[in-house]
Write a protein that binds this DNA or RNA. Structure first.
Lengths: 339, 339
DNA sequence: ATGAAAGCGCTAACAG
DNA sequence: CTGTTAGCGCTTTCAT
């Protein structure tokens, strides 16, 4: 049935020769272009099938001087929200034109220069990047080379689709405040451009409430890092009664550290994460968290990308979604005067 | 600094013209091919930088009649183990040749014909597929068109990297048996080729123990499906005292259903999942599960893919990894005579 | 060490 | 409706 294992795949020329027409007709037929008689079309498809011919999308792009592939950069595929973003992007992209070229960061805990290089060399038409850790300048520079939509983080002059982190972090902090907590700590990730909004929002909200912010930076954004950082924080005599973390992964780490130390949540420690991952929903986890609507972020990014592809001169997109605090059982009123 | 926004990107010819040499030299220089004087090389790189030239990997592949991209098919990116597989594949692939073209299934709950088509049309050199739901015949047919390594599932005549599901499911079932359970149910996913091993292993292990297997098929592999299926199972008067699920996601659904019904785990219901996802580790979840070493599966698949690329005539790979039962607190001895 | 020329598989005017 | 002719950006003999 199918052709040989590793034989030279059939080309348009092969089909054309088989049918006895020119390559042009074959090309037209496969693209559904008008101007091919029904009969020839039939003959062409038949021959193509017989030969096991498959169009070469790459060669077509080259000839067309057009880039139909979309490049997707994801910071950390193991983090649920990036999987959600990917999944959202997928829904926005047309069923057929699905050449999705992926670049996953090599280092979750740092800038990965050259992460976008492979995407550029693969000549994608546009890059959807979630989340770039590079400096604003560098992102802007990349965007000058290839259309780029920044997801999760706004960058001036670059199409951006993100969530209002300031509002989200403020809601989280205020929630803790309203529960009577005063010793509220924030566990942030390492500091990168565009990654300090939640932290700054927390700090300002604390100060606005007349309290001293206390921020600790984890080594990276993983549960392990969260656990290590929390182990230290919880050892202090004046340990916080509540912790707000940069993301759910970090929060899950804090949770483990708390239990390891014999503290219960929310009785001894209130905990608020960020992302509202599926894990946060689980009975027994019940993590209060801020939903940034990752799937929606991805879907919107896909739409923006498509628009940009169709109209390079469209005004820069700036889509800011509103996050939502989801209160569960990991937070409770502070207990009397803490010890 | 960088060239115009959407200007025509610089090509080798541009660089050649700028320096005053032939395209050949530029090509040689960029590939580090011998036969270019040091001076010309310098001049070329300089000019390239000035013009913002980036090699076009796609055109290079075309000219070289060679496919350097690897295609990756993932059944369900929202499922942690596929993210793990991806992450494992990444580690096995050389740093530079990282053109990873992704195809994510459109429907988690069914066969997605044409999922591999885009990969083929993108002319990838090899496809790493985890997990194909198609029939063995179809997978074999695809493998005849493009080199393919099947991950998670063995397919005769096709490079396969998988875990010994039979052993894993048997260990899980025996664990429950050894705890004194007799009414042990199995929650499987929908039935597809290559996806019935765990179920069959469970059934045989039950029969070997002189017990009647009781298998229920969920609509798909998601927590929601697991919850719905479990809600029904747990409603029966002779409800099982233990449930072994096809994967962790399903198990998490069962867990929610149990709690919703006021049953505690493991007191009223023992639960065993499959995958040993990170969620299973969490305090408060403590899900007993079978670890299939997804990252390792991905890493091995990447290695096999590379070998196949280098040697099309190498014997078919058949890498079977041994899974490992990880016992946690979601399983306990059966209580007296159940009610 | 360098260049000319042919070609990869396909598209796109432009002619018949 | 159908075929001819140039490319797309790059690699690769084969000369010089």
């Amino acid at each position: 049935m199918a052709p040989d294992p590793q034989h030279r795949p059939a080309t348009q020329s092969d089909v054309a020769r088989e049918v006895g027409v020119s390559r042009t007709l074959v090309s037209f037929a496969f693209r559904g272009a008008p101007g091919v008689s029904h009969e020839t079309k039939q003959a062409i498809f038949e021959a193509a099938k017989r030969l096991g011919y498959r169009p070469n999308a790459v060669a077509a792009d080259l000839a067309r001087k057009h880039r139909s592939a979309v490049g997707l950069y994801l910071l950390d595929i193991r983090n649920e929200i990036y999987a959600d973003v990917l999944s959202g992007v997928r829904t926005a992209l047309p069923q057929d034109s699905n050449r999705l070229i992926l670049s996953v960061s090599r280092s979750v805990d740092g800038v990965d220069p050259g992460a976008l290089e492979s995407l550029i060399e693969a000549r994608v038409g546009i890059i959807i990047a979630a989340t770039l850790l590079d400096s604003d300048e560098r992102v802007q520079e990349m965007a000058r080379i290839v259309p780029l939509v920044s997801v999760t983080r706004p960058v001036r002059g670059v199409d951006s689709v993100y969530s209002d982190d300031f509002a989200g972090a403020r809601a989280a902090t205020q929630h803790l405040l309203s529960l009577g907590h005063t010793r509220i700590a924030h566990l942030s990730g390492p500091v990168y451009d565009g990654h300090v909004v939640r932290r700054r929002s927390y700090e300002q909200t604390m100060r606005d409430a007349g309290l001293a912010p206390q921020t600790v930076a984890a080594e990276d954004f993983t549960p392990d890092a969260g656990q290590r950082a929390a182990a230290q924080m919880l050892n202090r005599s004046d340990r916080p009664t509540a912790i707000f973390t940069h993301n759910d992964q970090l929060a899950l780490g804090v949770r483990e550290a708390a239990y390891a130390r014999g503290l219960s949540i929310p009785e001894d420690l209130s905990l608020v994460g960020y992302d509202n991952s599926r894990t946060a929903h689980l009975h027994g986890i019940d993590l209060t968290s801020v939903d940034l609507h990752a799937v929606e972020l991805g879907r919107t990014a896909g739409t923006v990308a498509l628009e940009r592809l169709n109209n390079p001169d469209a005004p820069i997109a700036d889509e800011r979604l509103m996050p939502q605090l989801v209160v569960r059982n990991s937070t409770a009123p502070v207990r009397g005067t803490a010890g």
